[in-house]
Amino acid sequence: MTKLSPYRQAYGSGECGLCAIIAAVDTVCHNIDEEAAGQFLSALAQALPAETAADLARILYEEGTERPEMERMLAAAQAWTQARGWRAWKWEGAHPQPGETAAHFWDCVSTVSQRPHTAVIIGLGEDTEPDTRYSGHWTCPERITKREVYLRDSDVYRRIPRADTGIRPEPRWAIEDCYILSRAT
């Protein structure tokens, strides 16, 4: 059996939001090994509004994580890394704006993702195409070209054509959320 990297999730795992945060923090402030990744994953999961393991499973595998849950986990991630004396970092929302196109969004994000010690987390929603391979997903672009978005943290989607995405009312796989993580200066 192939062993997954500490910040990659397999198909259907339901942990894409958690894995995207781990991948982003790894880029920004520290190389996360498998032991730290397990502890970090646990700390992020504890930030979710779940009182029982069944509640946690329901959030991760049935409901999925949306913007409020991601923001809770990002705050928990900052507290967890700070408690370990890792480099200070910050995060901010850079969500698509009304009237913005996917082409403009990807062009802007591509310049941000090239900055040292900076990572981007993207939240993708539903696709307008029937029988699509795309579904709701959180991910970290590793490299963005004029045609493709190469992803760091997913065994499901390794790269996606930019033309397969859109910001509503544009058709295709909806770009809904964006967070930028960077080292604090």
Rank of each mutant, 00 (worst) to 15 (best):
Y7K: 03
Q9I: 00
Y11E: 10
G12F: 03
E15A: 13
C16S: 14
G17N: 09
G17P: 10
C19L: 13
C19H: 13
A24Y: 03
V28N: 07
C29R: 05
C29A: 12
H30S: 05
H30C: 08
N31L: 10
I32K: 03
D33G: 06
A36V: 10
G38H: 05
Q39D: 11
L41H: 14
L44P: 11
L44H: 05
A47W: 08
E51K: 15
E51H: 13
A53D: 15
A53W: 00
D55I: 08
A57H: 12
E62C: 09
E63L: 15
E63R: 15
E63A: 15
G64N: 09
E66T: 07
E66M: 09
R67K: 14
P68K: 10
P68A: 02
R72M: 15
M73G: 04
M73C: 13
M73K: 09
M73T: 05
A77Q: 08
A79M: 09
Q82C: 01
G85R: 05
G85V: 04
W86H: 07
R87G: 02
W91E: 02
E92M: 08
A94G: 00
A94Q: 06
H95N: 06
P96W: 06
Q97L: 10
Q97N: 01
P98K: 06
A103Q: 11
H104D: 05
F105E: 01
D107T: 05
V109H: 02
V109G: 01
V109C: 08
S110H: 01
S110G: 03
T118A: 02
T118M: 02
A119M: 09
A119I: 09
I121Q: 05
G123D: 04
G123V: 08
L124V: 06
G125T: 08
G125D: 04
E126Y: 12
D127W: 11
P130K: 14
P130H: 07
P130M: 07
T132L: 02
R133K: 13
Y134K: 02
H137S: 11
T139L: 15
E142A: 10
I144C: 04
K146W: 00
E148R: 15
E148Q: 14
R152H: 03
D155Y: 09
V156M: 11
Y157H: 13
Y157C: 03
R158S: 13
I160T: 11
R162G: 00
R162Q: 14
A163R: 15
I167H: 05
R168S: 06
P171L: 08
R172S: 04
R172L: 05
I175Q: 04
S182K: 12
R183C: 12
A184D: 14
